[in-house]
Every structure is written in structure tokens, then in C-alpha cells.
Design a protein around this nucleic acid. Structure first.
Length: 458
DNA sequence: CTATGTTTAAGCAGGG
DNA sequence: CCCTGCTTAAACATAG
């Protein structure tokens, strides 16, 4: 069915319409444009709008989102109660923006200091910030439909129904990145996603299966065993330290290349001692596309061994069982800092030209080692920020988290993305959503939602 | 049992 | 056309 995300550009018109009516969502008004907005767009704009031409309407520049969605108190607030400490709704105030201003703060937190991450970083306190706490959003309009599907067909479904333009991997990554501890349990990941994207309040079985699959299947995610103190069901999931900026382009639509790690860490005993493990275990992580990068130093961190080892090739090798990281304590996360910045910080590298692929690596010296410099052949222009960049989300989100007030959900955030018809959408994607109408089956599911990042090259 | 995790496999789309 | 990334579906396996 639907394949990945893809949405080709198109009629924004339609979308605009949606918005118009959108029930409610309309409020994009204020927003924080500042930081992110700019950021984001900045680079992007340049991009040729191949797509549909963006109308300029709204102004991308700043328009963002905002919204006030929250209903404090009320009702719907947390449906889930997981551990989050949530605060109570209402609190706040709105300062949310501050953060934005900083512009990526995001990174900030994490990057700053590793540990800091936890402590310092923004509030991060909980493993998952408190996002969940609020999720009012959806409440309003769609909420009722709590159920999923219904035949909406109509357009007016707001974007809420629209599938977010992020791949599951992106979503997971975002969730992980934004969490204070940089690691989350499966369930927390689910919650984060649902809180932020109403779309995922539907058909949970379906997408959650996909999430699980993504976690297990992709080497970029590692399982961190729960320390004893926290009882609970599954383990924590974190980003592989070397996964680097998988979405360096800032666009979480599709990774340039997949992070693959060959190493097999044979955890100690190598349970069963599978031949596959090489003692030395050098970790070479590569991306699929091109050359692999070997990481010289893998942090001590135990990398998960290759999940599907040779998958295609050698069929016989059986998977070792040791996936988990030997982490001892969660405390030691896989360098949070590292990833963090990689992801968030958009390196400022001015986009390297496609021609110079290598240029980049240099920039990030720090990360240099591990990141994979590769540079995708593909990414032509996209550079760092993207409308869909998590930065946008994150920023906003974080801010909210911090303040825990209104979290803006995807809609909101995206508001400018899509919504604005204007522009932003155009930048990265063209909205097309077919949501709905088309799918007989489910509803809002629209197949593709994303558009490609600016690449219109083709 | 259910929540988690792993895997395999099919199909689609983007891109070279 | 082929390779790669992603999404789904599903069968299993395991842990709480």
C-alpha cells in the first residue's frame, strides 16, 4: 500500500482550502517563527521551487504556526498517562517562543554536554519530556472521531488526518532526540508520536508494528537494557552513536542512506558463539549507499551487532542474539551529545555543492569521526533546514515541552509547512494529499505524503 | 495474555 | 533497470 512517504506536490490549492476550513486549525498566527522559521527556510528557499510554485502567500517567512490549541485543562489532556510527570496543564504561559528564538536550541541542549543532556538540557527530565501530557489538540476537532477511519473523504479533514511527512525512522529519531535522556521505551515512542501527530492516533496497530519493525531492523537504533531500577516491559531504545546525522539534510522525509553497522559486537559471551562475530569487531558502519565509512573508534559503546547480518547475501548466518547493547546502565547513553548535534545542528555548512562531496566532512570536526560524511549524491540542494526538519518540530516542541503548555502538534507546526499554502509547503513538499478520498480503505491515509525534498532535479 | 522484539517478505517509489 | 529506502503484513519468540 502506501509506500513511503511521498507526496508529490501538488495542489496546494487543495490544501489551502483545507486550511481554510480546516476546522480550527487555522490559527496559525503567531508563531515562533523566528528561530525556526527562519532557519528553516532560509536555506530552503533558495531552492528552486520546482514544485509547484509556491505561491507565496503566506509568507513563509514567518508564518508559522502557532496556534493555540491547547486547551488547557480540559479535557482531553492526557489520555495517556504514562509516567510522565506531567504537569498540569494550564500552567503556563506562553513563552514558548523563547526557545525558538534561539534557533535550534535544540541542539543546544544536547549538544552541550553530554550529560548535560540530562540534566541540563532543557528540562528534560523525563525521558520523554512531557509531551504527552498535553495533547489536546486533536481533541477538538477530530477528536471525536476517535475512531479511526471514517470516511471522510471529504476534504475537510484537516491536516490532522494527513500523514505526517516523516518516515517512521524519522519519527523515532525525533522522539529519541528530543527526549532528555535520549532513550525511550517503545511505548514512549508511541506516545510521543501520537501526541504530536494526531494522525497516528488511528490504526495504531498498523503503524506501531511498523515502528517496532523499524527499531529492530535498523541499525541506527539500539536497544538499551533497562537498568534494574526501572522495571517495566521492554528496553529502552536509543540512537546508535554512530548513526550520525542520518537526516542531515534536515529533512526527515527520507534518509540519504541507511545507517548500517556491520559490526557485531559479540557481547561477551557471544552467546552461542556465533561465528559471525568477529572478535575484533571493528565497527564499520556504513550507509548503504556508498562507501562505507568505517568508524574508527567506535565508542566503546557496544554497538548492536548487525541486525540482519548479511541479510540478503548470506542467508545462512544466523542472527546473533545479542542485540542489546551491553550497556550497563542507561546512564551511559550513547553519546547523546554527539548525535544531537549532528542532527540538530545543522551544520552550517553551506551546502556543499554537490560537486564537492567531501567538503562536508570537514566541517563537523567533532563529529567527523563518526559521522558519515558521505554525502549523498543525492542531496543536491537540500541543505540543512527543511520545513520538515525536525528542528521545526522540535523546537517548537521543546519549547512547549518545557513550558509544557501547549504542545503543538504536527498540525500546528506544520502549519506553515503545508498550510500556508504558501510556501512552505512548497519547499519541501507539495502537498498532495490524497488523503482521503482516495483511500477506500482507510481513510485518511493518504499515501504519500511527502514530497521530496526539493530535489526536483529530476 | 499482551507488550515487546525479530524476521521475512512483498510492493512501491526515488534515483542513478 | 536495478538498487535502495520505507511501509506493511505477518509469523514467531520472549518477557512481564
Amino acid at each position: 500500500m502506501l509506500s513511503a512517504v511521498k507526496m508529490e506536490g501538488h495542489d496546494h490549492a487543495d490544501w489551502s482550502g483545507y486550511y481554510g476550513d480546516a476546522e480550527g486549525y487555522s490559527s496559525f498566527g503567531s508563531l515562533t517563527a523566528g528561530g525556526l522559521g527562519m532557519t528553516t527556510m532560509g536555506g530552503y528557499m533558495s531552492a528552486p521551487p520546482g514544485m509547484s510554485g509556491l505561491p507565496g502567500g503566506g509568507g513563509m517567512a514567518g508564518s508559522p504556526v502557532n496556534v493555540s490549541y491547547m486547551n488547557p485543562g480540559g479535557g482531553g489532556v492526557s489520555h495517556h498517562h504514562h509516567a510522565v510527570p506531567g504537569m498540569s496543564p494550564g500552567t503556563g504561559a506562553m513563552h514558548a517562543m523563547g526557545a525558538a528564538a534561539g534557533g535550534m536550541m535544540s541542539a543546544g541542549g544536547g549538544s552541550t554536554s553530554p550529560l548535560g543532556a540530562q540534566s541540563a538540557s532543557m528540562n528534560a527530565l523525563t525521558p520523554y519530556g512531557g509531551v504527552s501530557v498535553m495533547s489536546p489538540v486533536y481533541g477538538g476537532h477530530q477528536a471525536n472521531l476517535g475512531r479511526a477511519r471514517e470516511p471522510p473523504k471529504s476534504y475537510r479533514r484537516s491536516y490532522t488526518h494527513a500523514k505526517p511527512p516523516y518516515s517512521y525512522i524519522s519519527l523515532i529519531t525525533m522522539a529519541l532526540q528530543q527526549s532528555g535522556s535520549k532513550m525511550l521505551t517503545l511505548n514512549e515512542i508511541y506516545q510521543w508520536i501520537m501526541d504530536l501527530f494526531p494522525f497516528y492516533r488511528q490504526n495504531q496497530q498498523r503503524w506501531q508494528n511498523s515502528i517496532r519493525h523499524s527499531l529492530s531492523f535498523n541499525d541506527c537504533f539500539i536497544k538499551v537494557p533497562r537498568s534494574s531500577d526501572k522495571p517495566g516491559k521492554g528496553s529502552f531504545w536509543a540512537l546508535h552513536p554512530d548513526s550520525g546525522n542520518m537526516f542531515e539534510n534536515g529533512c526527515y522525509l527520507r534518509r540519504q542512506k541507511r545507517f548500517k553497522c556491520e559490526i557485531k559486537v559479540c557481547k561477551e559471551p557471544a552467546a552461542g558463539g556465533k561465528p559471525s562475530c568477529e572478535a575484533g569487531a571493528v565497527a564499520s558502519c556504513t550507509d548503504s549507499r556508498g562507501a562505507g565509512t568505517e568508524s574508527p573508534q567506535v565508542h566503546a559503546s557496544p554497538v548492536k551487532e548487525t541486525k540482519r547480518a548479511a541479510a540478503a547475501a548470506a542467508s545462512e548466518s544466523k542472527p546473533l542474539r545479542a542485540h542489546e547493547v551491553s550497556t550497563t546502565s542507561p546512564a551511559r547513553l550513547p553519546s547523546p551529545a554527539l548525535q544531537t548535534h549532528q542532527l540538530f545542528a545543522h551544520h552550517h555548512h553551506p551546502h556543499h555543492h554537490p560537486n564537492h562531496p567531501h567538503s562536508v566532512l570537514v566541517h563537523d570536526a567533532h563529529t567527523a569521526g563518526q559521522l558519515k560524511p558521505e554525502h549523498h549524491p543525492l542531496h543536491h540542494h537540500y541543505s540543512f533546514n527543511h520545513p520538515f526538519s525536525i528542528n521545526n518540530l522540535m523546537s517548537e516542541q521543546q519549547s512547549h515541552q518545557q513550558h509544557r503548555m501547549d504542545l503543538r502538534t504536527y498540525d500546528q507546526v506544520m502549519g506553515y509547512g503545508y498550510g500556508s499554502t504558501a510556501g512552505s509547503g512548497a519547499l519541501c513538499m507539495g502537498p498532495k494529499a490524497s488523503f482521503d478520498g482516495s483511500t477506500p480503505a482507510d481513510t485518511s491515509y493518504y499515501q504519500g505524503v511527502y514530497s521530496r525534498p526539493v530535489m526536483n532535479s529530476t
